[in-house]
């Protein structure tokens, strides 16, 4: 009662002070963001501009660039100049690697969603104390070293790894199944790497779910399945989109997973780009490839922004 009578005055008083405080210190306070902005601007944004420029230059023979304008990098993405008759030939090698990576990323996103949604929902419906433990258990792999986690998968699926050893001992197979350095290995590694990236955003959206709506649906004779598909899933759409994005973007640009589990045979975009800066010695091509990947990411982000801003208007 007292709080109800007091709060309007306190609030207006606070607002008055806030107005004064803001007037005197606003200009100075905003300068505080300068160090962070300068560091990211110089060492984060400027390098991105540099690779834009580099993608229009000519490769130097031993790595690096020569300052000479050329659109070869983009041409070489799709075409190769024939050495003998100087004609352009359509070579889809890079395009195929991009499409493969896209496919890997899509499959990873879908399977992570199919596994992650039930997990996140189960977590969100636990009593609070248990919930904290679940969140910690999912948070730990989220932040754990990706290289080490990928190594763990490698140990298990090697020819002399645990899975093959177990199957051999049980007599199911008489010679090891080759799993390492295959597409299967990359797909498994991607799923393993990014599953926590799906669960956590889904959880934070499901945790806020208003279960009175679920109750209302049951009161109106909805089945469990109907409640799931027509109430719970539509309400958690922002979390689903955020989770899919958090899995799709890093999966598309994955570098460590195909490097270790693909063994340099089955490339993804990430390895392809890195290769141009290493043994490929074609920096402009690598820059162009990086920018094409960036464009794909921006398209994904654009859909995200459009979907979420639409949500706010309707909600």
């Amino acid at each position: 009662m007292t709080t109800a009578t007091l709060s309007p005055t306190t609030l207006s008083k606070a607002a008055l002070f806030e107005a004064q405080a803001v007037k005197t210190s606003a200009r100075r306070n905003r300068l505080l963001s300068l160090p962070a902005l300068i560091i990211i601007g110089v060492f984060g944004v400027l390098p991105l501009i540099i690779i834009c420029v580099y993608s229009f230059l000519v490769a130097a023979p031993y790595g690096g660039v020569q300052w000479q304008f050329s659109t070869d990098a983009y041409f070489n993405f799709l075409f190769q100049r024939d050495i003998f008759d100087d004609t352009l030939q359509f070579t889809p090698d890079f395009l195929i690697i991009y499409l493969r990576s896209f496919l890997f990323a899509v499959v990873t996103t879908i399977i992570c969603l199919l596994l992650g949604f039930p997990t996140a929902y189960f977590m969100a419906t636990r009593p609070p104390a248990q919930r904290n433990w679940w969140v910690l258990l999912i948070t730990i792999p989220f932040w754990s070293n990706l290289l080490v986690r990928t190594l763990a998968i490698m140990f298990i699926i090697r020819d002399e790894g645990l899975i093959n050893d177990a199957l051999l001992a049980l007599g199911v197979i008489d010679k090891p199944i080759t799993m390492l350095y295959t597409n299967f290995a990359i797909q498994l590694g991607l799923l393993y790497a990014f599953l926590p990236f799906m669960v956590l955003p889904l959880y934070s959206s499901l945790e806020k779910l208003d279960f009175r709506l679920v109750e209302a649906a049951y009161d109106l004779y909805a089945t469990r399945r109907q409640v799931l598909w027509r109430v719970i899933i539509p309400l958690s759409k922002p979390g689903i989109i955020a989770g899919c994005l958090l899995v799709f973007i890093p999966a598309l640009g994955a570098y460590v997973t195909p490097l270790i589990l693909g063994g340099g045979v089955h490339l993804m975009i990430g390895d392809l780009i890195a290769q141009q800066f290493g043994s490929g010695r074609n920096w402009p091509l690598g820059c162009a490839q990086a920018l094409i990947l960036m464009a794909a990411v921006l398209v994904a982000l654009f859909f995200y922004v459009r979907n979420t801003s639409g949500k706010v208007q309707h909600g």
Binding site: I40, I51, P250, L252, I273, M294, V297
Partner: peptide
Amino acid sequence: INLPLMVPEIITAVATLS
């Protein structure tokens, strides 16, 4: 501020190298 979270790591890596 959030840019480094949105750009795939491999792009940041080659950009920083360049």
